[in-house]
Simulated assay, not measured.
Amino acid sequence: MTPPGWHPDPGYSGNGPAQERWWDGAQWTGHVRASPGAARRRGIRIGVGVTVGAVVLAAIGGGVYLLDEDGGGPPGTAASSPSAVPDPPGAPDGGEKDGEKGGEGNGDGQGPGGQLPPTEPGFATDLAAGISLPVPKGWKGTSGAVGAGLTTGEHACPGDTAETCVRGGVFSAPAAAIKLTAGTPEEAAKKDISLNAQESYGGKSYGKISSHEELKSEAVTVAGGKGYVVRWKVVTEKGDDGYVESLVFPSPTSKDMLVVVRSGFDVNKDAPKLSVLDDITRGIKAASGAGGGGGAV
């Protein structure tokens, strides 16, 4: 089953800012909030936003950016206000209910009652996807109610030194959270790789991507599920070239949910070796206490 948490609102019409709705584990509730990507933000630039603990991570790769919410607080519930109507069992504290207007909040991407996602030493947990990513030595891991991320090697972006990029990064999220729709893991991975490359290395911080070479496109088993991975080497206009990878597989806690893991490493002596990326993929497992089967491969 899909774990309780904030997920893209299935009833969103496309008019106005995107929003998320709280799933209590059995049904959609009346609690809604602005999607993290629609919230006002400051600091270091980012591509597609998904809440991950105290930072927002997206399009992880050499061109990834880390970003705090506007106002200095951690991201999460972008619009929250107390409600006079009793919350349904398992509903989150704060957030809006249908028909209510909320103000700026300081949510942190936590689950109901302010509880952090289940974590364990050495792993970053993506609660919505039901997975945990192994944190390599020297890396920073961030858990979240929707999304998890790993980053290392912060440095000034080559095309815009006022912003910060990283030498390597890995980011996970349910496919629906980044609006990736595809029938199979293979279809999704092949569709996502160009988006990943553009988000990671195609912006002003690296300039346009002039060409790419496909290094890998194959089936893979992740957390007990049959997935698919595509890896490119991209040539950038500014700064280092990069390796980008899109990995898609079924969630170990909900076989109907596809999970996307986007990765990107600079082609640089100070960047992690690609063998580290392979180690991370092998170490992905079902989140501790998330239910369902599957484990590290």
Score class of each variant (00 low, 15 high):
residue 1 M to Y: 07
residue 10 P to K: 00
residue 11 G to F: 08
residue 13 S to F: 02
residue 14 G to A: 06
residue 16 G to E: 10
residue 18 A to P: 06
residue 19 Q to A: 01
residue 20 E to Y: 09
residue 22 W to M: 06
residue 32 V to H: 03
residue 43 G to A: 13
residue 47 G to C: 14
residue 49 G to Q: 13
residue 50 V to E: 10
residue 51 T to G: 13
residue 56 V to M: 14
residue 64 V to D: 05
residue 68 D to N: 14
residue 74 P to C: 12
residue 75 P to Y: 08
residue 80 S to P: 07
residue 80 S to H: 00
residue 81 S to E: 13
residue 81 S to I: 12
residue 87 D to P: 02
residue 90 G to K: 03
residue 95 G to Y: 04
residue 95 G to W: 13
residue 96 E to M: 15
residue 98 D to A: 06
residue 98 D to T: 14
residue 100 E to S: 12
residue 103 G to F: 03
residue 104 E to I: 15
residue 104 E to R: 14
residue 105 G to K: 04
residue 109 G to D: 06
residue 119 T to N: 01
residue 119 T to Q: 14
residue 119 T to R: 06
residue 121 P to C: 01
residue 125 T to L: 05
residue 128 A to M: 06
residue 136 P to C: 04
residue 138 G to D: 09
residue 140 K to R: 10
residue 142 T to Q: 10
residue 147 G to E: 06
residue 154 E to R: 12
residue 154 E to W: 04
residue 155 H to Y: 09
residue 157 C to T: 06
residue 157 C to Q: 08
residue 159 G to P: 03
residue 160 D to Q: 05
residue 168 G to V: 07
residue 171 F to M: 13
residue 172 S to T: 13
residue 178 I to T: 15
residue 179 K to D: 15
residue 180 L to G: 00
residue 180 L to S: 10
residue 183 G to A: 13
residue 184 T to M: 05
residue 186 E to Q: 15
residue 187 E to G: 11
residue 188 A to M: 14
residue 189 A to Q: 00
residue 192 D to N: 15
residue 196 N to S: 12
residue 199 E to D: 15
residue 209 I to S: 00
residue 214 E to N: 12
residue 219 A to I: 14
residue 222 V to I: 15
residue 223 A to C: 11
residue 224 G to E: 02
residue 224 G to T: 07
residue 227 G to S: 01
residue 230 V to A: 02
residue 234 V to H: 11
residue 234 V to L: 10
residue 235 V to M: 02
residue 245 E to P: 02
residue 247 L to D: 00
residue 248 V to K: 11
residue 250 P to W: 04
residue 251 S to R: 03
residue 260 V to N: 08
residue 261 V to S: 03
residue 264 G to P: 07
residue 266 D to H: 02
residue 269 K to E: 12
residue 270 D to Q: 13
residue 271 A to R: 02
residue 273 K to Q: 13
residue 281 T to N: 09
residue 282 R to W: 05
residue 282 R to Y: 09
residue 285 K to W: 01
residue 286 A to E: 08
residue 287 A to Q: 11
residue 287 A to I: 05
